[in-house]
């Protein structure tokens, strides 16, 4: 029962995160695209990422909403958050100009906070994956 609640809380947090940030990036598409264009690492792909990223975030939320695809959604959320965390770490290490293209209120965080926030979500995704697998095994045994 405890594991189930932990998984549900983590999934709910990810649903909120993906819907909120995906929606904000799509609504503020132009601003998002320009901010990405200022980012030294992804500048050449800014136009492409500006469309794919928010769409992908909303699709991730959809995967998490549907019980049958929830574990897949958690795996992809973990991969995405790992990439985001790596990107922020790279930006902090090597970029002099740090444009934030995070979407919504997340833009209010400074980059160190953002790194912690993303790392926490990455760990949470991993915890939810491990607990889901343990729960599945237990259910299949019984």
């Amino acid at each position: 029962m405890g594991k189930k609640i932990i998984i549900q809380v983590i999934v709910a947090l990810f649903v909120i995160l993906w819907v909120y940030t995906g929606y904000n990036k799509l609504v503020e598409y132009e601003e998002f695209r320009i901010t990405l264009g200022r980012s030294p690492f992804i500048q050449p792909l800014a136009g492409f990422i500006a469309v794919v990223l928010p769409t992908g975030e909303l699709l991730l939320a959809l995967l998490l909403v549907i019980p049958k695809t929830r574990l897949l959604g958690l795996y992809l959320s973990f991969v995405t958050m790992t990439l985001f965390t790596g990107y922020i770490w790279l930006m902090l290490q090597y970029a002099s100009d740090l444009p934030c293209s995070c979407g919504g209120v997340l833009e209010m965080m400074d980059w160190d906070d953002h790194l912690l926030f993303n790392a926490a979500f990455t760990v949470a995704a991993l915890v939810a994956i491990v607990l889901s697998i343990m729960r599945k095994r237990k259910l299949s045994i019984t």
């Binding site: 709910a12 909120i16 998490l64």
Partner: peptide, 22 residues
């Protein structure tokens, strides 16, 4: 039941984001 709970959370988030945006 779980689908409904997560769907409701997603919908509420979307409505909140849209309201803030507006």
């Amino acid at each position: 039941k779980r689908l409904n709970l997560m769907a409701i959370i997603a919908l509420l988030t979307l409505l909140t984001a849209a309201s803030v945006q507006a």
